[in-house]
Design a protein around this nucleic acid. Structure first.
Lengths: 329, 329
DNA sequence: ATGAAAGCGCTAACAG
DNA sequence: CTGTTAGCGCTTTCAT
């Protein structure tokens, strides 16, 4: 057991002031903004260096009632969450903001975070996923900017969503073009989510357009982890299953394919699989997919937060997802 | 542009006190520890609820000179970083600690974080990777617990490392057993890192033991991102390259295999690949690997931090990595 | 059992 | 240009 210098008083602004023979405020001015005579400034800097002084973040945070910290809130971990976090942190750090990560296990967990937000312990909130209803979360929007990459309709919470409707239609058209109109299976996310609704709507539109289309084979898995395996089991136990499957993420597609391989099935020979989001899984396993430009989505989210905090205009970057043809479909 | 209720004073302990007809300290006692008569307590709770009062985190942090926050420090993002972060956050949250993520771009960035640590803005530090020398970082160990999963020798910074020496020997023995003693290639990390040194030492020991062994084909890539692709290029441009390659992570192995596939090579038919760390990439691409039990490593790290902070005994969990035979080797 | 007062370290408004 | 003072919101002796 080590003992730490935790009880030792930090060298503070007052120590520096005394050593430099000036007042607290002068030292403060040197380390923040404010006019200080050059000679005085030098004295202060000198004293500060000798004492190895660094201004206390905690004191500043209490004083300013802001922390320059963004809360990153998810429900569980899966690879895309890591990628999102990477982008959020990347864009935040460029503007001098930190990111604190939360995995909520319950509504209460989430409320605790929202309360910390209200208390200015967090300046902005990025939701990967939420546990309480948006209508509830929205109430906190008056305390600062809240954003999400999810597709939601709200004038309080900013959403950087991209519309899956045209993209999903594009996928199906691509498949029909390449392999002919036929039975296609779908591994989808939570049916109550707007992205899933948009996909379902796309399927509907396609069904109208192509009388021979058959898109009845639909599986829904709100959790990415294990979705591919479960879908594979369903697939393998159903002789009537389609020969072309569209998954809602490359990760899910990858796990699906992996489980198919384990049963001796070949992709694309025996079955074709289309992914979504163009992650490393898609790249390495050569999965046809849609590049959703996640980095730009996150960029919009973070820029929204920061431009709001700093009272600047927010410029939304247009996003142009594109279909990537690879070997699995 | 929205406007936020940022300037509005928070309802604080004093407001509650006034409403309840008691003093600040009594309210404080109710919300922290301390004896308060039942009747008084009820009055306070009532007033607090009516005012929607929540104690200020910021004020407590300044007061206590601790934040219950652990800094997670990496140099860049690659999938294993996400996995590490997930585990760190998981174990930290169970004990009521938060995690703030940093990607350092320079030594200065890292020093800024270390300074915040000194200033009690961070209670503990987890290093995925460091930019300054360990000897420099060690100096900050007197301000609180610092840990890393990297293999370092230090009595100030805790290391949860597992010894790659026996594991790497095990991999080579496994290969020789299965395919006979022959030329084996190695994709390795930074040669100055102790894990890499341990692997090199294992190769040496194996070379002694098997006179016919040939382990000269060695590539070094400190950055995981792109390592597999570069290694593949080297491999493809070298007709004398070995037919069995060991990579330093499943991710690197996956990218390597992916690039081989793109050139029409088949694994394991044309070439065999062994990974390391048992990530999702290994699982989905069926890569033989070593399960390093990363979660336990991180568990030890986080437990070390927290038991030190809370002055409790630290119990290290023993880790038993194991070889996982899959299809690529 | 409760209140008064000091202090965590900083900044900004106000004087001078 | 610099010093004084008040205040951010909380906890913790020390009295009573």
């Amino acid at each position: 057991m080590l003992t730490y210098e935790l009880e030792i008083k930090l060298t503070n602004i007052f120590d520096v002031a005394r050593k430099a023979g000036v007042s607290k405020s002068t030292v403060s001015r040197v380390f923040s903004h404010g006019y200080v005579a050059d000679a005085t400034r030098r004295k202060v800097i000198l004293a500060a260096n000798e004492l190895n002084y660094v201004p206390s973040l905690l004191a500043r945070q209490l004083r300013d009632q802001k922390t320059r910290t963004i809360g990153f809130i998810a429900k569980s971990y899966y690879p895309s969450v890591g990628v999102l976090l990477n982008f959020v942190t990347h864009f935040a750090e460029r503007k001098g903001y930190n990111v604190t990560v939360y995995f909520t296990k319950s509504k209460k967990d989430e409320i605790r975070i929202l309360d910390n937000f209200r208390l200015h312990a967090l300046d902005g909130l990025f939701f990967v996923a939420n546990r309480n209803d948006w209508s509830f979360i929205e109430r906190y929007a008056k305390y600062g900017p809240i954003v999400t990459w999810r597709r939601i309709k709200s004038n309080k919470v900013y959403s950087s969503f991209i519309d899956h409707y045209p993209l999903y239609k594009e996928i199906l058209e691509y498949i029909y073009n390449k392999y002919g109109v036929q039975k296609v299976g779908h591994i989808l996310n939570d049916p109550t989510k707007n992205n899933t609704k948009a996909r379902l709507k796309a399927i509907n539109a396609i069904d109208q357009k192509y009388p021979n289309a058959d898109n009845q084979w639909q599986l829904f898995y709100p959790e990415q982890e294990g979705a591919g395996e479960k879908a594979a089991n369903k697939f393998l136990n159903n002789r009537d299953a389609p020969k072309i499957i569209v998954a809602y993420s490359d990760y899910v597609a990858a796990e699906f394919i992996s489980n198919l391989h384990a049963q001796g099935l070949r992709v694309p020979n025996d079955i074709k699989v289309f992914g979504f989001d163009n992650s490393d899984f898609g790249k390495f396993m050569n999965i046809s997919t849609i590049d959703t430009c996640l980095n730009l989505q996150v960029k919009n989210d973070v820029n929204y937060i920061i431009s709001n905090l700093e009272q600047k205009d927010f410029y939304k970057e247009e996003i142009h997802p594109r279909l990537i043809k690879r070997s699995t479909c």
